[in-house]
Design a binder for these strands. Structure first.
Lengths: 200, 200
DNA sequence: TTTATATTTTACCAACTGGTAAAACTAAAG
DNA sequence: CTTTAGTTTTACCAGTTGGTAAAATATAAA
């Protein structure tokens, strides 16, 4: 056995990460406390700190796991597919993530709003590289006349904002839409929006 | 003299509110400390607490001032104006607020992300009432055939998300768009988007 | 200039913060 | 069944937190 995790270790680390996601996504890094996280997963504070040595270590690990998940949907957008389908599929993946991973979305939002002190390098390297690449793909589609002329970067921003809004501002959406299911109508609305925007 | 504020009182209260906006918008309620706010405006902590008795009082007052500013642009949308112009003017007002009042936007975003513990009643009363009213106006425009058929509530959500994104996610936008001015191109992009969405 | 009032500083407090040391306990391998 | 390694608890610490009391200082009205 090299340095394999025991069952207990895996269970506890998972449970800590889950609790930390809950707390950090709600209060941000400064607003979260180790004790709150410990209580949320039923461990004592020193016991939690046996698995992760500092509060920051938990946060960094949460964020670095998240960034993969976060960039994946855009990576999948395929230059060789049908442009509108590719963009719309991306929108749907992002909306689905807002629906199924709202805490992750809020964790990310909190980090960005607070000036991204711990992931600025990811934004400027991984994220920027990926967005540049995909913006180029979109530009090619525009140049070939396959979709309407749009600013590729702002198109991507609009997809981010329109989809993440339903996770990050959930309380507000729920306060206004007391009866309907936001996500069902959001999908229809966004489908209309983007088909009109991109139609030749 | 009834209970008029002295010059000193006005200057200090203003300066505290400004510093508090800076800190609360960056760290959220839990992440902000009275001491950070005090230092940001060059007062000692007890001196600051001479003007506002608790941390919460500062936050509540900041938020309640903000809510007026926040709802105003939508209030101005006029049933009797030209539908597309009215909606587009609303978009421009919101975008302008993101540009000129990014801290206020982030203060609001922080509060909502954290579950709106201090303004849930405002969302469910003032905000909901206003949105219901304006959604009805939009629905009338749709029914009269003056704009394309859209879900009025999701139209409003999309205006919020598309415009506030440029304030709340500013670091991310800046990381991706290293050279251009985001707001100028955003305005053009949003003009195109909404004219295509709403065109008959 | 005196007096009353408003403002600021100093010194403090109890609760909470992130984190540590070491003892006590538990599980698993031999 | 013992030894060893892994896990949890207890007790603690120094710095920070929101907030207070009272003394000291500045301001303004009479």
């Amino acid at each position: 056995m090299v340095d394999r995790e025991s069952r207990i270790q895996k269970r506890n680390k998972d449970s800590i990460m889950n609790a930390a996601l809950e707390i950090f996504s709600m209060y941000g890094f400064r607003g979260a406390t180790v004790d709150l996280i410990a209580k949320a997963c039923g461990l004592s504070k020193p016991n939690l700190l046996y698995y992760f040595q500092t509060k920051e270590e938990i946060h960094v690990q949460l964020l670095s796991r998240l960034m993969d998940t976060w960039l994946d949907p855009l990576k999948e957008m395929d230059e060789n597919g049908d442009p509108f389908n590719e963009i719309m599929a991306y929108v749907r993946r992002k909306l689905h993530m807002s629906k199924t991973l709202p805490r992750e979305s809020r964790l990310f939002a909190n980090e960005i709003i607070q000036g991204a002190p711990r992931i600025n390098h990811v934004l400027q390297n991984d994220l920027k590289t990926l967005v540049d690449e995909k913006a180029l793909v979109i530009q090619k589609w525009v140049d070939k006349g396959l979709i309407a002329k749009v600013h590729p970067y702002h198109l991507i921003f609009s997809i981010w904002s329109l989809t993440q809004h339903y996770a990050d501002f959930d309380v507000q959406v729920q306060a206004v839409l007391t009866d309907e299911d936001p996500f069902e109508n959001a999908e229809n609305y966004l489908e209309t929006l983007f088909s009109k925007l991109l139609a030749i």
